[in-house]
Amino acid sequence: MRSVIDGFGSPFFQRAAIEAVLVGSLCGAVGVHVLLRRLPFFVVAMSHATFPGVVIASVLGFSIVAGGIGFGLLVVLGIVALGSVRALDDSSAIGVVLAGSFAIGVLVLSSRASASRDLSAFLVGQILTVTPADIATTVAVGVVLLAVLVALHKELIHGAFDPAGLGALGYSTRALDLIVLVAITVALVTSVPAVGTLLSVALLTVPALAARQWVERVVPMMVVAAAIGAGSGLLGLCLSAAFDVAAGGAIALTASAVFLLSVTARSSWSQLARRGRPNPVPAAT
């Protein structure tokens, strides 16, 4: 890997840095919706379940992003269908679909000769090989996703907070749910070249959770999460180059470090605040 990076000034590194910042900020912002709707398990599942789409697209020579999104949509429908089967709760349906579709991806890959190198590229990303076309895809996807999230912000937040209330107002909660699930899947697949399928979970949950420690409103939270995602992407990339470790892993670990700092800061802050007040107001129930 060292031969690829001849210092931070190389075009490979510059492209990687741009991709890391773009993916980090996009996933950070989308991640807030993941938390608000309590969808982390869905994200984990999709990170596995989009895998066969990515593999098949790569085998057939299609765009990885298109393949992942296409298969991801199928899986979303599969989960929705399974969820309606009685005696199975959502999470077991997700578990079955997750492992099953991942196995399909592995099977397709294992039948090919150069399997093991491709596999690890999909799993942990190969950000140093991103092309200008990859970056263009990320920009286009990011603009569309953010436009949708901003345009439907009011409805999406209402749906996450009080779905029955939104349904009573005459909105189709199912359509809005589907929009969110699709948005998350698209963001996830877009981050595959940078951090791989398994570590995209990190960018879609950890920055948002860190941001939640600092701010209380949704819009600022999305901004802060995007900033944390972008910062983790850039810093993680530099660390990976400096210590010669996998970039996807370094980016995810940086995000976790930011989360750890945020949590520690918040809890010591609230302890200080409590000490400052001799008679604390009892917590509202």
């Binding site: 209402h158 909105y171 409103r217």
Partner: peptide, 25 residues
């Protein structure tokens, strides 16, 4: 039945009742 940790202000909750009149976008 509503999530007490959800990051919305009281005013935002009340404004949700107006969604339909405000309209999309």
């Amino acid at each position: 039945v509503l999530d007490p940790e959800f990051p919305v202000s009281v005013l935002q909750v009340v404004l949700m009742g107006r969604s339909r009149r405000i309209g999309w976008l």
